[in-house]
Design a protein around this nucleic acid. Sequence first.
DNA 1: TAAGGCAAAATCGTCAGACAAGTATACTCG
DNA 2: CGAGTATACTTGTCTGACGATTTTGCCTTA
Lengths: 240, 240
Amino acid sequence: MDGKPSFPLGPSSLTEALYESVRKRIVNGDIAPGEKLTEIRIANEYSVARPTAKACLERLTALGLLRRTTHKTAVVPKLDEAEIRDLYFSRETVERAAVVALARAGTVPPEAVRAQAAMRAAAGDAAQHGSDQGSHAGAFATQVEADIAFHSALVAAVGSRRLARMHEVILGEVHLTMGQFQAHRTTDPMNVAHEHDDILKAIGDGDPERAQQCLAHHLDQAQGRLLGQLRRERSEEAHA
Amino acid sequence: MDGKPSFPLGPSSLTEALYESVRKRIVNGDIAPGEKLTEIRIANEYSVARPTAKACLERLTALGLLRRTTHKTAVVPKLDEAEIRDLYFSRETVERAAVVALARAGTVPPEAVRAQAAMRAAAGDAAQHGSDQGSHAGAFATQVEADIAFHSALVAAVGSRRLARMHEVILGEVHLTMGQFQAHRTTDPMNVAHEHDDILKAIGDGDPERAQQCLAHHLDQAQGRLLGQLRRERSEEAHA
DNA sequence: TAAGGCAAAATCGTCAGACAAGTATACTCG
DNA sequence: CGAGTATACTTGTCTGACGATTTTGCCTTA
């Protein structure tokens, strides 16, 4: 490493830091949907060896954040309507199993409560800076992270390593769509926070049926916002 | 490649063939539970470059067939009771979603029917060669493959790429436990075939509730056989 | 002008060889 | 026997290279 890397890596292990950095850039739209991501580009931008860049791309591909087939350049996907539906169907499969298990145990995960508090704080920030576009973007990113953290915490709290791994397989795409479509902007963040509260309450009350209903409603709403935004973008393209 | 590889690779792409070969050796016990699997060993046994061996091990690790952490040698896992329970919990999460979706559509997957026929044929072979240990092992392996194919076909028939990917994450371990514990031997293969028939019938009848009950029963039975075998092995070890 | 073909460039797949870092094993000493 | 140290082994990452595949650009033809 004799060059000055464009995206400096921190003190943690190289491949881990590389993966995290590229992942973040994909999720936040810095590397845009449809954009090609070559091993050589990553190797140059981060001053790492090409095999290291390759491993990074392979990992991102395995987690749905990139699409890549043999002998072709990786590309950041943009999900269409059918894919969003499939994503949310699969998401619900995993997360329903999680909330049902938690409700049966009557176990409210502290991490989910913490993520919910972070979500409320971010929602408050968003309302406060409504007229300040720069801080608005920051608060929005925090909302997304808190939302992801909430759902991840629910799944993680079940204590099933395999359920968590299956969740991870789709979480990249979930995160990607939230970044790409920014559909969160089309609703009051407090609505999302209320839906989370409903889920937590049903879990705490030991009511598996209600827990899964609240979750299904919440995910339906989220999916609906994404699909609405997708249709808006498609209609804007048709007029351009 | 100037040496003669110990395990010759076919005409398909190198990394794919390597992965398949090592995966099969792990599943059939040729590379035994607890056994360490170094990059250097794979590179030598297959006459490939070490990075190629590394990529193979990483892929097997991602799919649960190996355990590997940073700076340590990969090892074939042997699942304990808690892990088998977790595996079957997660398996049921995915497969229940699949049979419910299929039953709602009243769609019996032709591939599942085909796998079921293969299973019956293998069960017939097992009964016929009951006293011939060599062919018995072959028929057993075919039963396992047919069983896996049946369940995979159910999930694949939903047409959800993400559900299939989540299933794949656990399928390696499912396959691994079946090979390691050979618990299939502790029941008449026709019992398994009947349980598959029940699932298919419920799907064909468009009865989601019955489909998931039949599946749950089937997986409970399978899990019970595995746990029974695990306890038998543990008690044999205690006496050795 | 548009389409097709071909050559060059770009990218990916895999390799050999090497050095650094981390872990495991063996040996020695108290 | 246990602890510490040295050595061996393995993994992480790199450089440089060759071969294979895909993409791009240019030229020719209809």
